[in-house]
Write a protein that binds this DNA or RNA. Structure first.
Lengths: 108, 108
DNA sequence: CTGGTTCATCGGCAATCAGCGATAGAGAAT
DNA sequence: ATTCTCTATCGCTGATTGCCGATGAACCAG
């Protein structure tokens, strides 16, 4: 039901198309239990805080991460629903690409 | 065995991070049976030939497409092996992100 | 050799990206 | 009120991207 269009898929792909942002997702996943704020992430990376903040914003805009104001800090966590959605959209895309004219006829 | 590193995943993601390039993959998939050269693709898109050629080059560099000199033309087709590899790398990535500290312990 | 087709590449242009330091605003604590 | 921490945003730089038209190489047909 929840079909992602090519534009949506492409923009999520672009958001994921940077190694630092993949690292950020991993960091958030590891520290998912507790709170994970921007400086926490920054301390795991050899980058300035402002740079990390901007990468996080990209992930936010792509809907892959959500913000929770928790006391003083802003805490971030993964939107696993969106990740799953994107994952299945990917699989669908690739399945559609692989199965076309050539091999066995698929069941519509 | 064939683990893709984050850098590899990210560069494939970047290659897929443009709607036109997704369209090109779809076009190649449809016309996979026959030959599909650059002008064929161009005629399916509202873009100049040079632009399409450059998009194809991005896909080539990412290893998602291969070139076959066929007579006069250059024919392109999908590298379904690479697509599958990337797809499983994605699934692995997302699975790793979803399953961390919280729920059931996974079998290493 | 001449002419047609295909296509990769070059040069140029505007827009976007990735990085940084600096700054300002929002809360908490003193 | 003052001071601390946290962090989003601004301004700047250089690099990359996306698009185009034009050019030239490669190839086949006359």
């Amino acid at each position: 039901m929840n079909q992602m269009r090519d534009d949506d898929i492409a923009s999520v792909m672009r958001a994921l198309g940077h190694p630092v942002r993949l690292s950020i997702l991993r960091i958030l996943a590891e520290q998912d239990a507790g709170d994970c704020c921007c400086t926490d992430v920054t301390q795991c990376l050899p980058l300035a805080q402002s740079t990390v903040s901007q990468h996080i914003k990209v992930l936010l805009d792509a809907g892959l991460v959500e913000r929770q104001a928790k006391g003083t800090r802003n805490c971030y966590k993964l939107r696993t629903d969106r990740l799953a959605e994107f994952n299945s959209a990917c699989s669908g895309l690739f399945a559609g690409l692989a199965t076309t004219v050539s091999p066995v006829k698929e069941l519509a």
